[in-house]
Design a protein around this nucleic acid. Structure first.
Length: 477
RNA sequence: AGCGGGGUAGGGGAAUGGCACCCCGGGUGGCUCAUAACCACCAGGUACAGGUUCGAAUCCUGUCCCCGCUACCA
């Protein structure tokens, strides 16, 4: 029996409401889960929230709430992304007591392994970065990023020490598991620069009170990343599924690559755990060319997309318009154009055409539709197996329903076929051709199923009943 | 400053050394089954200057320009 597939997203930091970047990541995990399930794999998908840290405490204070009450409330907003058909199996929260206990056990192990050491530390601390800065990051006594004065701090902190041995294990991991290749190179540079040879992984309690206490050291709180990264394992422990490790696919954003490609494998190697098989790194979504931010007021929320396009079309549009592995740009106009062009005029219209024509397929012929469906299901399974063998799934292409090895979509092929064969004339004499295009739509429904599961089922329902109902009504200006 | 990403048709995006492709928009013709939808054809493109190569959007060097790593933020 093959080990079940374990897929994770990053856990979202709860100092703000969810936006479409996180939804996109979660949807990608969901699509991969559906690909695997459709070929018979068991899958466990975990997402969740990272709820510790100074910024969360500050956000709570700003909202006039106790941190726990605040995170309880925000976590619900992230859980609600299930509305988008994201079938996660477990939602991990780092304030979960079992998780915290788990992290403390791991911490103790890391100390025993000699990887964590407490050392007096004298350094320059930037309150903007919430990190100590080394010489290359300081200019004229100021942080080069924040251009603000640094605090000189002398205190004892815990450090994660990367031995040469650990580093070579990390390097191997990066070379084999990080996708896409540009990210691989980027993070290899960081590893080799030595900037992460010693990482401060605790903060004094006064500075950071909202976090997991360091075991046997009541002066220190764990750095949030140590706490957060272990969620991928604690989620399994909590569900008694430890045997699902190592993760098959971990999906993250490019901003947290260093933590996942350097610190995470270090923690795993040092505690004798296997490393994840793949780290899939996505880019960011800009809005009208600018980064999404509260101050610019250009944050696009999942709810806004859902309201305009509905869940199924939102899933389609995010994957079709945006480039998963690179940064890309969101604009309402482009989404509208794509919705009308490919979903209303393309897919929806084609299904309606075919239903109309299919009335000439002899009834006893149509009675065997279930067999046709099974044929297509098996055909798609073979295709999906091929897709999953690739280093990374090209979501943008797959969601477009392209014919294998061609730059033509099945939709265009169907429309073109109907027109060339003039299927609406003397239709009763062309039942062979009608059946061909009918089957093409069946195939399309399976192809799109990981992205638009409800639509796929609805297409098959309409084909079985020959009852036409617009799938994607045109958007009016 | 440093690190990283990028510049592809009028707009937006693909293309991991091998026919530059997709969506929107423009033009011409066709069709009227279908959601005023669809089909065919046409026009139009790799920022600039060199180099490597049988072959470069892709690799190398240089120039110009844009963006991210900067509160909030994936």
């Amino acid at each position: 029996m093959k080990k079940p597939i374990y897929i994770t997203t990053s856990i979202a930091y709860v100092n703000a409401e969810p936006h479409i970047g996180f939804l996109y990541e979660l949807l990608a995990a969901d699509v991969l889960k559906r690909y695997h399930q459709s070929i018979g794999h068991e899958v466990f998908l975990v997402t969740g929230t990272d709820e510790h840290g100074t910024k969360v405490a500050q956000a709570a204070a700003a909202a006039g709430q106790e941190p726990q009450a605040y995170v309880d409330q925000v976590a619900e907003n992230f859980k609600a992304l299930k509305d988008f058909g994201t079938e996660y199996d477990y939602f991990i929260r780092t304030t979960n007591l079992e998780h915290q206990q788990f992290v403390q056990e791991k911490w103790t192990k890391l100390v025993e392994a000699g990887v964590l050491q407490k050392k007096p530390y004298k350094g320059f601390y930037c309150s903007g970065c919430e990190a100590f800065k080394n010489e290359s990051e300081i200019k004229d006594g100021k942080c080069v990023i924040h251009e603000r004065d640094l605090e000189q701090i002398e205190e004892e902190n815990w450090f994660l020490i990367l031995s040469d041995n650990l580093k070579s294990g990390i390097k191997k991991f990066i070379e084999e598991c990080v996708e896409p290749a540009t990210r691989r190179q980027e993070v290899l540079n960081v590893l080799e620069s030595g900037a992460y040879d010693e990482i401060s992984v605790s903060r004094s309690r006064e500075k950071l009170s909202w976090g997991v206490p360091v075991p046997n050291d009541n002066t220190q709180t764990m750095y949030v990343w140590v706490d957060a990264l272990f969620n991928y394992l604690s989620a399994l422990k909590i569900n008694s599924k430890e045997n699902y490790w190592p993760a098959d696919i971990q999906i993250i954003g490019k901003d947290i690559l260093k933590f996942h490609a350097i610190i995470w494998p270090a923690l795993l190697l040092a505690t004798g755990e296997e490393l994840p098989k793949k780290l899939l790194v996505h880019g960011f979504i800009n809005v009208d060319g600018k980064k999404m931010s509260k101050s610019l007021g250009n944050v696009v929320t999942p709810a806004a997309l859902k309201e305009r396009y509905g869940v199924e079309a939102t899933r389609y549009l995010l994957f079709r318009q945006l480039s998963f592995y690179d940064d890309s740009n969101f604009s309402w106009d482009e989404f509208d154009a794509l919705y009308n062009g490919e979903l209303a005029n393309g897919l929806g219209n084609l299904v309606a055409r075919v239903i109309g024509l299919a009335k000439v397929i002899p009834t006893d012929d149509l009675a065997s539709i279930h067999q046709w469906i099974e044929v297509h299901r098996r055909k798609q399974q073979a295709f999906f197996r091929e897709i999953l063998k690739r280093d990374r799934v090209d979501f943008q292409r797959e969601v477009g329903g392209f014919v294998e090895g061609a730059e033509e979509s099945l939709i265009n092929r169907g429309d073109s076929f109907i027109t060339r064969k003039l299927l609406w004339r003397e239709t009763e004499k062309k039942s062979v051709e009608v059946r061909a295009v009918f089957n093409l739509v069946l195939e399309l429904s399976f192809r799109l199923e990981p992205f638009m599961p409800e639509t796929a089922k609805e297409i098959r329902r309409q084909l079985e009943t020959l009852e036409s109902k617009p799938l994607f009504p045109r958007l009016q200006k």
